[in-house]
Design a protein around this nucleic acid. Structure first.
Length: 280
DNA sequence: CCAAGGCCTGAATG
DNA sequence: ACATTCAGGCCTT
């Protein structure tokens, strides 16, 4: 029998989680830190480094997760429409820099900036007779000049990128440790990085540090809450202050449970598709 | 505690 | 052709 929880590669990649991906024929190619992934239609992965990867989080019990997050009609519909959409487990450093770059930007521009960063600072490699640039290591970005980083089109975020890379280099941020920490502990730590506020932190936690209760609240998610959940999560202020963000997150985890991040991904995908927004 | 303004770029619109 | 508007999250005031 066909597994009804089979991975949908297209939906998973085109859901705002990753940026350095290209489709060529039937295959998707993507940069993930110091590795390159090739994924065919059925979700079979081949990697440049020939190592096992947990990119699709295959150990997640999707049946359990979907049961757990399906608390209302909106979520049930989104899950049904985009069944096979997965949270991806990315290289943490690349994920951190990606979402620092994402602040005050949009998918196309984020992608273009990250490509320039990889091309300028990353190692060129060949894989499957194609040329790729790996994502730069922390030391490379930590030692780059601000102007050189700015040439990648990141503007005022250049300083954040350099400082963030330096914190990783100096082990002030230790991803392996943060993976083992509880959500709130890891979040507090990661919010100390310049250019990382609540939203960026939640993206990094959800997409690279195994914190499935993280629920990034960007403008789209706020709109979704206003539209479909105005009774459940009433917004007290016009702007989402730190305090408001935490209050909403608390209510969200109470509603959706420990896998709230999955609910966020389905809802985000649904609403962006409703508005016919472009992906990669 | 909250509100407002600035930061930066590229695409979309006029 | 050119100018204006818009999208977007963090930080400082």
């Amino acid at each position: 029998m066909q597994n009804c929880y089979a991975i949908n590669v297209e939906n998973s990649i085109n859901s705002g989680q990753v940026f350095l991906w290209e489709k060529d024929g039937d295959n998707w190619y993507g940069i993930n830190g110091q590795d390159i992934l090739k994924i065919n239609n059925s979700g079979k992965i081949k990697t440049y480094r020939n190592i096992k990867t947990n990119f699709f989080r295959k150990k997640d019990d999707l049946e359990k997760i979907i049961k757990s997050i399906s608390k209302d009609k909106t979520t049930k519909d989104a899950v049904k429409r985009y069944l096979g959409l997965r949270i991806l487990e990315q290289d943490p450093f690349q994920c951190l820099i990606s979402f620092i770059v994402s602040a005050n930007s949009n998918i196309q521009k984020i992608k273009s900036s990250l490509e320039k960063i990889s091309k300028r600072f990353g190692t060129r490699v060949e894989f499957q007779s194609k040329e790729f640039f790996l994502f730069p290591k922390p030391e490379k970005l930590a030692r780059a000049s601000i102007n050189e980083i700015k040439r990648c089109g990141v503007g005022y975020r250049a300083q954040y990128i350099k400082d963030a890379a330096n914190m990783v280099l100096l082990k002030k941020i230790d991803f392996e440790y943060l993976k083992k920490c509880k959500y709130h502990v890891a979040k507090e730590k990661i919010c100390q990085i310049p250019g990382v506020g609540n939203k960026v932190a939640d993206c990094v936690l959800l997409f690279s540090l195994n914190k499935l209760e993280a629920f990034p609240l960007d403008r789209w998610m706020i709109r979704i809450l206003e539209r479909y959940y105005s009774n459940e999560f009433k917004l007290e202020t016009k702007t989402i202050t730190e305090k408001q963000y935490n209050i909403i997150h608390e209510k969200i985890v109470n509603h959706f449970g420990p896998f709230a991040g999955y609910a966020q991904q389905f809802l985000f995908k649904m609403e962006r598709e409703n508005y016919k927004k472009k992906w990669l």
